[in-house]
């Protein structure tokens, strides 16, 4: 049997005509962005630590969209327009998240229509004020003030303050080349916290490091951080 060219052509035509049905959903277009702030001042966290959940009620599904704040305390999603609720689970974050009467985390209602930017106010246990870093003679020093924000029943004490230095912009407990710690009880004056750490040999060699200060509170997993600073030797 000979296969004729026109058969193939007509077959291909029919196939393309039948199969090219538009079957894609429209992609989400509304961008939801924002930051976690205290009195308008952004909070800094650690990479991959402080998680939150977004719910879109009304579709029969009860599961959340789970995600994690960036080290700069920011979040961003591409979503469909609609009403959402944002929740930070209990025990997450170095801040107090409002709770409902029955002890569940309260939700922030978000009505999304087009691109929306939204800053969420929380009460951190402490704020790191006037962080300053300096490099001299093979050492990095860091100073800051700690200002207590949350008082009363939810107040936490400073368990430890840590100075992290790192080869990359991630300078935290998971990524660092050297750390210096001071226990909270060993700090005489929270208005004058000072740490310094020797820079180890960097492989491969580089003439800069990144530094940040993290504060751990007793009874809270996640630390609060100062913004990461690049120090060039």
């Amino acid at each position: 049997m000979k296969i004729k060219f026109q058969y193939i052509l007509s077959f291909a035509l029919i196939a393309s005509a039948v199969s090219c049905k538009k079957d894609n959903f429209e992609e989400p277009k509304a961008a939801l962005t924002g930051r976690i702030v205290y009195q308008g001042e952004p909070l800094n966290f650690e990479y991959n630590k402080v998680s939150y959940e977004l719910y879109q009620p009304g579709f029969g599904k009860t599961g959340p969209i789970s995600s994690i704040f960036t080290p700069e305390g920011a979040f961003s999603h591409l979503l469909f327009d609609g009403n959402y609720k944002m929740v930070v689970p209990l025990g997450q974050g170095p801040f107090v998240w409002k709770q409902t009467a029955d002890g569940k985390p309260d939700s922030v209602a978000i009505s999304l229509k087009g691109n929306t930017s939204l800053d969420i106010e929380v009460m951190p246990y402490f704020m790191i004020r006037t962080p300053a870093f300096a490099y001299s003679g093979g050492k990095v020093s860091g100073t800051c003030k700690l200002e207590q924000i949350v008082t009363g029943a939810n107040a936490r004490t400073v368990e430890r303050v840590t100075l992290y230095i790192s080869k990359t912009r991630f300078a935290d407990s998971q990524t660092n080349v050297a750390t210096a710690n001071v226990a909270g009880l060993a700090i005489p004056d929270l208005n004058n916290v000072s740490l310094n750490v020797t820079v180890p040999a960097l492989v491969p060699a580089q003439n800069y490091v990144f530094a940040s200060i993290g504060v751990k509170f007793s009874g809270a997993d996640d630390m609060i951080f100062s913004p990461v600073v690049k120090l060039t030797f």
């Binding site: 009860t62 599961g63 407990s173 809270a220 997993d221």
Partner: peptide
């Protein structure tokens, strides 16, 4: 790394699909 036990490690998380099946 220096190991860091979080308070959330004391009790295992209940997975999302289990929570969804039983509100």
């Amino acid at each position: 790394a220096s190991d860091n036990w979080q308070l959330g490690n004391y009790y295992s998380q209940i997975e999302a699909d289990i929570l969804t099946k039983n509100p």
